[in-house]
Design a protein around this nucleic acid. Sequence first.
DNA 1: ACCGTTCTACGATGCTCGTCGAACTTCGAC
DNA 2: GTCGAAGTTCGACGAGCATCGTAGAACGGT
Lengths: 107, 107
Amino acid sequence: MPAAEQTVLPQPSRAEIRIEQVLQALGDPVRLTLVRALATGPAVGIACGAVPLPVTKSTRTHHLRILREAGVITMRTEGTRRIAVLRRDDLDALYPGLLDGVLGAPH
Amino acid sequence: MPAAEQTVLPQPSRAEIRIEQVLQALGDPVRLTLVRALATGPAVGIACGAVPLPVTKSTRTHHLRILREAGVITMRTEGTRRIAVLRRDDLDALYPGLLDGVLGAPH
DNA sequence: ACCGTTCTACGATGCTCGTCGAACTTCGAC
DNA sequence: GTCGAAGTTCGACGAGCATCGTAGAACGGT
């Protein structure tokens, strides 16, 4: 079949994003590592499995779901891979300065 | 007796503040309410008990401890009252924009 | 000195969260 | 078609957290 692979996983719209969920999502070491990797990587997003993490695959999936449902990242399916992208536009519009403040913190 | 009441409760120094702890501390609805009240109130700080919260006093004490140990607030004893102050200077210096982003979020 | 106010400390309980292993699905390559 | 790689889902377990009630300490006023 031609075309079509635009499988974007369900996520909250910009208006549905809650500050408490975002903060709680960012408050975990594993998820913060993930977000930092997404922020410093290419803007088109990176494959989830490409980020080295000291956890198993299922735990990684769990954390990615938390980040997605909180509105921090977008995920789309591309073949057998999942590509994650940081929703920098939405976060900057809702909470200007927050993301930069978090990312600028000492690693 | 003259002077002396400078009883400041133990708290992390600016260098000891961890971004993960700060985010996790701010990620709770009760604590976020507390921080918002401290931010909009007088700069000298307000009494802990003055903020209306849907929890008991012991729970309130617990949340204040979390905020203090994360480095978000300072607490000093003043007679029979505990005065809480937001550590805006330290937070702004460490994570510029973060606090404003959080406080600017829709209530 | 006594009492009321204000808050902390101590247990105790229920629940959520982070973690894992195993089984299942889907896709790409041979 | 068959195999392997990439991720998801499910159930389970342990740790930590939020909550509460009660008891106790420190201070101010009468």
